[in-house]
Design a protein around this nucleic acid. Structure first.
Length: 456
DNA sequence: TTTTGAGTTGTTCGA
DNA sequence: GTCGAACAACTCAAA
């Protein structure tokens, strides 16, 4: 289209719920007036837990406020809804940030086809990542399968600067989807408190973290009893802040904390890249031979794990933190994941699904490939003998026991480290804390033996 | 093509 | 308490 020709377009928001550093918004605004749209897609809404639904709705409300109440929210299959909205305002172009996930790619292809039938077009600009998945390749032109070489190539490639400020955008609305008409009701979360949603809150949090959290990040991030993480995983998941913005904020910082944080952002990009190249690994084993392990069916032991009643304090604290807050510390995610797969011999997919149901930051690529890493079926090269010991992990990363006591009231009467070993205290079970449902040393050996069998 | 070096986050054992 | 070795030889990336 000629630059002088002004026309109305649609900006369809998905996981890019912000107005700053937004290339697709720039592309839309360059064409003329823009109708902002969000579609509540049952395929994504139905499997979501209440926490994620509530967080999304609050983020949408924050976005709507920034848009002067003009956000159009519709419900239904995007392949039907998006062309209908575009037709309503005579838009021939619908702008989006490209989705790299398996469902999103499939959905967007369907929407693009549906738009084509009406002589309209889906325009994908940018991705939720600093470097688009599928971009980084090794010397043979193939995707990396090991993190460290990927990260070197990722750094060498470099990442773009944040997108320009869009300036004054001609936001329009059509009066159909506004005023909360089609907004789902916000689920009742009871006592669960969510962090403030929206772009402004994400930026405030990021600035605070740069000022006061980053210097100790590399040490503190492994401590579930400390507040040492950025608390921005949900903001990244919903695109309230883009990793470009964060990498620009880290530019020039050479501290260990900055290095470690960049590496964590790189892990997010690596797993998105892996999933882009192997979409089926969202559900299937990245290393298929691991599917041949002997696994237990989901039953009582899974329920004990999910509800935080395994009798292993750090595991129970983690699972209860998940349900109480919609978030779990990353160190503890690894511990509880290892426990489910290696101690209870349940396939990682069940745990991954449980996490996605509760996590406010639940991201398919990071979550499921994190699970595969723990299960030993993922991109990590070989250390099959890595089985987390829930007691020593607890003692090492929650040395004072504060984290356990915060989430497991039955253990609050135990002081210090003793909270990790109630079986060593005379009154360890005085408040109905459950006995250990399995013997870790034994189950560890079962897992290792089975692994050896599968390998041979 | 062959070879070499290296691999997020671990655990246990024994000195 | 601390430290190094063993776990068991595997796969990938790059020279």
């Amino acid at each position: 289209m000629a630059p002088s020709e002004q026309s109305t377009s649609v900006l369809w928001f998905r996981r890019d719920l912000r107005l700053g550093d937004h290339p697709a918004l720039l592309a839309a605004a360059a064409e003329g007036d823009v109708l902002p749209l969000f579609v509540v897609d049952p395929a994504l809404w139905k499997p979501s837990g209440d926490v994620r639904r509530a967080y999304l709705l609050r983020s949408l409300r924050a976005l709507d406020a920034e848009l002067g109440g003009k956000l159009v929210v519709e419900r239904g299959d995007p392949a039907t809804v998006v062309p209908r909205v575009a037709a309503r305002v005579g838009a021939s172009r619908v702008h989006v940030t490209a989705d790299a996930g398996p469902y999103g790619r499939h959905r967007d292809d369907a929407v693009a086809k549906a738009l084509e039938k009406k002589d309209a077009e889906l325009v994908r600009t940018g991705t939720p990542y600093a470097i688009g998945p599928g971009t980084i390749l090794n010397g043979s032109g193939k995707p990396f399968q090991v993190f460290t070489p990927f990260s070197r190539a990722w750094v060498d490639h470099g990442w773009p600067n944040p997108a320009d400020d869009p300036g004054k955008v001609g936001w329009i609305t059509d009066g159909e989807g506004v005023d909360g008409k089609h907004w789902p009701a916000e689920p009742d979360l009871g006592d669960l408190e969510l962090p403030e949603a929206g772009e402004a809150a994400a930026h405030d949090r990021w600035e605070d973290f740069l000022d006061s959290g980053l210097s100790d990040y590399s040490e503190d991030r492994d401590r579930p009893d400390h507040d040492g993480t950025s608390q921005l995983s949900h903001a990244l998941k919903w695109g309230e802040i883009h990793p470009r913005t964060m990498l620009a904020g880290l530019r020039g910082k050479r501290s260990q904390g900055a290095e470690t944080f960049r590496t964590e952002l790189c892990w997010r990009e690596f797993y998105a890249d892996v999933l882009w190249n192997r979409p089926e690994t969202a559900r299937e084993y990245y290393k298929p031979q691991l599917a041949g392990m002997r696994y237990e069916k989901v039953g009582d032991s899974f329920t004990s794990w999910a509800e935080g009643r395994t009798g292993y304090p750090i595991v129970d604290a983690g699972m209860r933190q998940l349900r109480a807050t919609g978030w779990m510390h990353n160190r503890v995610r690894m511990i509880v994941a290892s426990f489910l797969v290696k101690d209870l011999h349940v396939e990682w997919q069940h745990g991954a699904r449980e996490f996605l149901r509760w996590l406010r930051d639940g991201d398919l690529a990071s979550n499921n490939h994190g699970w595969q890493w723990v299960a030993g079926s993922g991109t990590d090269a070989s250390p099959f003998f890595r089985v987390f010991n829930p007691v020593t992990q607890g003692q090492k990363f929650d040395p004072s026991g504060d984290y356990v006591r915060r989430y497991v009231p039955e253990l609050r009467h135990l002081s210090g480290k003793l909270a990790h070993t109630p079986w060593d205290a005379d009154d360890g079970y005085a408040h109905d804390y459950p006995e250990r449902i399995v013997d870790h040393a034994h189950e560890r050996q079962v897992a290792l033996d089975d692994y050896a069998r599968v390998k041979n």
